[in-house]
Computed example of a mutant assay.
Amino acid sequence: MTSLIHDLVHVTVRRVAVGDMDNNVYLITAKESGAQVLIDAADDLPAIQSLLAEGAADAAAPAKLALVATTHQHWDHVRALEGLVAATGARTAAGRQDVSGIPVPVDVVLDHGDVGRFEGFNLTAVHLRGHTPGSIAYVLKDDGGPHLIFSGDSLFPGGVGNTQKDPDRFELLMGDVVERLFDVYPDDAVVHPGHGAPTTLGAERPHLDEWRARGW
């Protein structure tokens, strides 16, 4: 089964599911420069290293892991982060309000709307409060392809992320997801969550009122 999920003009995107919680690890590789960004070093360092090697084969130049971007501080999304940083020397990024919960020093502290510029692609940080205080979705747009939203645990097929039945946290997350994703990006934008299968904003948009009414 191939790890390749998108073969776009300038980049490839690969995915592997790891660990006992079926966490998704995503890898973006620039075809020309070999620059790579890995999203969520969740678990299973050997599997992540295999993913990096598969991505490297997509590039015309020697690949280099430019950044490990974490969607949020929860333990199941960072179990391999320390080992990966030690093995590669890659820089790290996370949302400002989650930095204290990340098990390695964070080199790039992200706020809403920050743009990471790499050799061959850009990534936009979208702050989605509620699942954790500093959860970040990363948005990629390549020529001719749809927007890709790496949503962590803030947005899934069928609803927003877990807010522990706290109505204030739910309203915060629901508001951010609507205002910062559904109101900004088109229906063909593909949502790649932290666990499980992808969806699109168009598939989920008709259910927003239902989610709000049920409170989760």
Rank of each mutant, 00 (worst) to 15 (best):
M1K: 14
I5V: 15
H6D: 12
H6G: 04
T12G: 15
R14V: 04
A17P: 08
D20H: 13
M21F: 12
D22C: 11
N24P: 09
L27G: 02
S33V: 02
A41N: 03
A47M: 09
I48N: 00
Q49S: 04
Q49P: 00
S50M: 10
S50L: 13
L51V: 00
L52S: 00
G55N: 02
A57F: 04
D58H: 05
A59I: 01
P62S: 09
A66V: 12
A66I: 08
A66R: 12
L67P: 04
V68A: 09
A69D: 07
A69N: 08
T70N: 07
H72R: 10
W75K: 15
W75T: 15
D76W: 12
H77G: 13
R79V: 08
A80N: 05
E82T: 10
V85E: 09
T88F: 02
R91V: 13
A93P: 08
D98I: 06
G101W: 04
V108K: 11
L110I: 05
L110Q: 01
D111Q: 09
G116Y: 06
E119M: 03
N122V: 11
A125H: 03
V126M: 02
G130A: 03
H131G: 03
T132F: 00
T132V: 02
G134E: 03
S135D: 11
I136M: 12
I136W: 02
A137S: 07
Y138E: 03
V139K: 01
L140M: 04
K141D: 02
G144L: 04
P146R: 05
I149S: 05
F150G: 10
S151F: 01
D153F: 08
D153G: 07
L155R: 03
F156D: 09
P157T: 07
P157R: 10
G159E: 03
G161S: 07
P167Y: 08
R169W: 09
R169F: 10
F170S: 11
L172E: 15
L173M: 12
M174A: 15
G175P: 08
F182K: 07
D188K: 12
D188P: 08
V190K: 07
G194E: 06
G196N: 10
A197K: 12
T200I: 09
T200C: 11
E204W: 07
E204Q: 13
E204G: 06
R205T: 01
L208K: 07
E210L: 13
R212P: 05
R214Q: 15
W216P: 00
